[in-house]
Design a protein around this nucleic acid. Structure first.
Length: 601
RNA sequence: GCCCUUGUAGUUCAAUGGACAGAACGGGAGCCUUCUAAGCUCUUAAUGCAGGUUCGAUUCCUGCCGAGGGCACCA
């Protein structure tokens, strides 16, 4: 049983009074928003309702605000210390010390649960993210997809939803055929080995393994794919052979399937290494080869319903004029399916399998139109309603070009930045600093450096708004100072360190906050963590959490610098409680971002 | 050509239509016999341009300029 928090209950009584005030004055249904002011000088909570209703009532906003303020004051609501009307027409409300005392108590009592709410209780959301393309090592684009997806799962879950995550494994088609060809043709131990699948099946030892080349599996796969791709583009004979491979695979030729599984095993091994490092998790993986043929049935169904049309050459086209979208081909003139054909089938499968309120896809912005078309087609086919589906797009991760401009990563130009390389670089930078400080390099220190590196990398990707393009510079983005994940971790460690030292102290519980100033502002800030969790849900972006954590850390560190917490004073108990509450909020916030806290540096 | 996204300090990022546009990095000046200075304090500097709506616009609308992406048988 979740009871209303002290903040919710006080705010709702204020809201009721204000609504009542405006209703009495003839405003039909006033919307009263109580929000956190830019500065706590302007109250602990504030509303601009007087400014908004002034015109309707034909009154001066400031006088109206004064009326509202005195109305609330007269009601003598619990925990309200002061209400004032300010300049253009804001009503600013200040709470009493006992209120903040209770807030602090709630944080310390709720601990891990502080910040969570039940707004999505009873709802099931499915999030597809990080769908692997098993032909290349994972780069920063995949990283953003993964971090956005994973943080979204946690964000929605903190808002009370039951969240399931899945991915589609694009394990068949021309790309995998290129991969198989690249391996067959370019990983032979010598030129005399025939480039033949049949021969490979009986003489696989005549081809290199990643290990034999001293390569990690994902790099091995990347090499195979790139050479396969080059051959495909540069040699029509090879192109035909590769296309033939797809057909042979579809005909379930055993030799081809053996090679196919062999390549996929390397691909999965490579991805698994990177993904487990990131803490990735899927509840289910859909393998393309299991459902790719089912899409055609839906196309037939659409033709039957008359929502699609068959072109003269036999291809099938959508009619999306009702959706104000451009039409798209659903079936090639040779009768074979396209990406969207399979997506229709998979969406239907997912809709059926999960019975969920919402299906979300974390996919890059270049798919925006394709996603809209997919959703529209699904609605036409009765698979679901437009509002059941959502494309969660995210900005590109680019690099800084020579002229200082935003440049996309390009595998052709060799500018792709791999996830593992970035984490390694950050880890080494952190480790070096430890060693420079005279620490002994051992497993424990390496482990600590890895955790801090992950915090730095994840934080730098999750700090900006999900939809914005970001420029990634390994040196600049993987900051361990300033607004960084390491800064947040360090602040957390600081709270824990103080708590450890304070554990043996004699504490006298006082009944009021030490001073309403600095400590007070810190508690006020902590009070708004639950609001940030809601905002992250509304915008489907955890960056609000990251930005907020920086604010909390900054406030805490400022306080820490000025104030001795373990000062043996009467206020020591209280200051420790605040320190603990800061720790709780940082830990909970980082947890949404998928960043593990550490107790000691 | 049409559609979508986007344009904030030198740089990288913030800002549910609100109260002096916030940080960080960089530049400049300081703070460690004191709970670990990966920290703290001060300082420097920005809303592409032109209109409109509004009591109030970085935010909404229109036009222009710049950047990125997409536009039917690729995935």
């Amino acid at each position: 049983m979740i009871t209303m928090s002290i903040k919710e209950s006080v705010l709702s009584s204020i809201e009721q009074e204000i609504v009542g005030f405006f209703v009495d004055h003839g405003v039909k249904s006033p919307t009263v928003v109580l929000e956190r002011p830019a500065d706590f000088e302007h109250g602990d909570i504030s509303t601009s309702v007087a400014l908004k209703c002034a015109k309707t009532l034909g009154k001066d906003p400031y006088t109206l605000a004064q009326d509202v303020a005195s109305h609330i004051s007269k009601k003598q609501l619990q925990h309200i210390h002061k209400v004032e009307a300010v300049k253009p027409g804001f009503v600013n409300i200040f709470f009493d010390q006992a209120f903040f005392e209770k807030i602090l108590g709630e944080i310390l009592k709720l601990k891990t649960d502080f910040g969570n709410n039940t707004s999505l209780k009873g709802q099931k959301w499915v999030i597809e993210h990080t769908s692997p393309n098993p032909n290349k090592a994972m780069h920063l684009g995949h990283l953003r997809n993964n971090l956005v997806g994973m943080s979204l799962v946690r964000t929605l879950s903190c808002n009370g939803a039951t969240v399931v995550s899945d991915a589609i494994d694009n394990n068949r088609g021309i790309a995998i055929a290129k991969l198989m060809w690249g391996f067959l043709a370019h990983m032979r131990k010598n030129e005399n080995v025939p480039i033949e699948i049949e021969y490979w099946n009986s003489h696989s030892e005549q081809w290199f393994s990643p290990k034999e080349l001293g390569l990690l599996p994902d790099m091995f796969i990347t090499k195979c794919y790139i050479s396969g791709e080059l051959d495909f583009k540069g040699n029509p004979v090879v192109e035909n052979k590769i296309r033939e491979l797809v057909a042979r695979w579809e005909a379930k030729e055993e030799d081809v399937w053996n090679l196919w599984s062999h390549m996929l095993a390397y691909a999965y091994e490579g991805m698994e290494r990177t993904l487990s490092r990131l803490g990735n998790h899927w509840d289910k993986i859909w393998h393309e080869h299991e459902h790719y043929q089912k899409g055609k049935d839906f196309v037939e169904k659409g033709l039957g319903k008359g929502v699609f049309k068959r072109l003269e050459d036999g291809a099938v086209l959508t009619d999306l004029s009702h959706y104000n979208l451009s039409d798209t081909i659903l079936l090639k003139n040779d009768g074979t399916s396209l990406y969207i054909t399979q997506d229709i089938a998979l969406t239907a499968l997912k809709k059926d399998f999960y019975n969920a309120e919402k299906l979300l896809w974390v996919i890059g912005p270049e798919q925006s139109l394709a996603m809209k078309q997919l959703f529209a087609v699904c609605e036409q086919l009765g698979i679901g309603l437009l509002e059941d589906f959502m494309h969660v797009s995210y900005g590109y991760v680019g690099l800084k070009g020579d002229n200082g401009s935003f440049t996309k990563m390009s595998s052709r130009e060799g500018t792709v930045v791999l996830i593992d390389d970035v984490i390694d670089a950050a880890r080494d930078k952190i480790l070096q600093r430890f060693v420079f400080e005279g620490k002994e390099e051992n497993d424990e220190l390496r482990d600590l450096s890895e955790k801090m590196a992950l915090a730095a990398v994840k934080f730098s990707i999750l700090k900006p708004d999900r939809t914005q393009d970001i420029v990634f510079d390994t040196d600049q983005s993987i900051e361990t100072t300033g607004d960084s994940g390491v800064y947040v971790l360090y602040s957390y460690v600081r709270t824990q360190s103080i708590l450890r030292k304070g554990a043996g102290k004699k504490l006298t519980k006082t009944n009021s906050l030490a001073r309403p100033g600095q400590e007070g502002n810190l508690v006020k800030l902590l009070m708004f963590f639950p609001d940030m969790v809601k905002r992250a849900k509304e915008d489907l972006s955890a960056h609000h959490i990251a930005q907020y954590l920086l604010e909390v850390c900054s406030a805490f560190n400022t306080w820490y610098a000025k104030e001795t917490i373990l000062d043996e004073s009467e206020q020591q108990y209280h200051k420790l409680a605040i320190t603990e509450a800061v720790g709780v909020v940082i830990k909970n916030g980082l947890s949404i971002l998928g960043i593990e806290t550490i107790e000691q540096i």
